[in-house]
């Protein structure tokens, strides 16, 4: 039974991290369809950095720097230049797919030349990334509800006019949220390629960015809720793997839909309680 929990935590770590990153962005009022792409970029540069430097820590640092740059550009385009957030997000996904695939073929060739010494399980069978993710849940809770900047971010997503009238630069607050969020998403990518696997492979994120997007809505925009939603996805995935492995006579596609059925049920049940930030996806034009 305990093994089962380990698998659930292992499987949901990357989704949880990405969801937390999306959470902070969306609370700030910026929709991030590009999470999948950001995750892929994080996964790739984490491996590349480790490969080049020989240290996992340095690899993660490089991934975070790259993601901060991408987050900054994303914020610049959506917040300052008023690009459509969904369109820019989709563009980012396409860019990330092409960029990581091309770079990985250029640098690593094909096969598993990108293999590194990733993170080993340290305590109770899961790697340090899982603990980082859990710690981040608490940290984000504190940040969003008990610090100035956190409150400003949430206000910008809810009612930016109020923030503006209070004399605070809404754009800068949102940009900060986007950059921090992008970095956390990148960490999620790193956890997939460096802790769950030890190598990068093309398009390895496999839609986890979108699942994380759903997890944020399901978690009702609260860190604890996001944690529970991510664990639910992890659990339904784990169930699916184990059913597939143990029931061989049953058609696999029917077992594979379990996570999606679970999602639909969860959305139906929690849907009416979940409220998006009021200014989510809206372009705000400052007074000054």
């Amino acid at each position: 039974m305990w093994d089962f929990f380990i698998v659930i935590f292992r499987d949901s770590t990357s989704i949880l991290l990405v969801a937390l990153g999306i959470l902070i962005m969306q609370l700030g009022g910026v929709i991030n369809i590009g999470a999948e792409g950001m995750m892929l970029i994080g996964a790739f540069f984490g491996i590349l950095g480790t490969f080049l430097s020989g240290y996992t820590g340095l690899g993660i640092l490089i991934a975070l720097i790259i993601l901060a740059i991408f987050g900054f550009l994303f914020g610049l385009m959506t917040i300052y230049w008023k690009g459509n957030q969904v369109v820019v997000g989709v563009a980012l996904n396409l860019l990330a797919e092409g960029m990581t695939t091309t770079l990985s073929r250029q640098i690593f060739g094909t096969g598993s030349q990108s293999t590194i010494q990733g993170f080993k399980p340290i305590f109770l069978g899961v790697s340090v990334m899982t603990y980082v993710a859990l710690a981040l849940v608490l940290a984000l809770y504190f940040f969003l509800y008990h610090t100035n900047l956190g409150l400003r971010i949430r206000a910008s997503g809810e009612y930016p006019i109020a923030v503006d009238i209070a004399g605070i630069d809404v754009y800068r607050v949102q940009l900060t949220a986007v950059v921090i969020g992008a970095m956390i998403i990148g960490l999620g990518g790193c956890s997939l390629s460096m802790a769950h696997m030890n190598s990068f492979s093309e398009l390895m994120t496999g839609g986890r960015g979108y699942i994380a997007l759903a997890a944020v809505a399901l978690g009702q925009y609260k860190p604890i809720g996001v944690l529970l939603a991510s664990l639910m996805f992890g659990a339904s995935n784990t169930l699916q793997y184990h059913l597939q492995a143990s029931i061989t006579k049953f058609p696999a596609p029917i077992i594979r839909i379990i996570p999606y059925v679970v999602t639909i049920i969860a959305v139906i049940i929690s849907g009416k309680n979940s409220k998006d930030p009021s200014a989510l996806g809206k372009k705000y034009i400052k007074f000054s």
Partner: peptide, 26 residues
Amino acid sequence: KVLSSYTGSSSDTAQLKELTAAMVKQ
């Protein structure tokens, strides 16, 4: 006993790893 199943993805390495793990558990 032969365990065989499909993840439905040609690129998702993590998924296939977990499926393998589940099969080894069996």
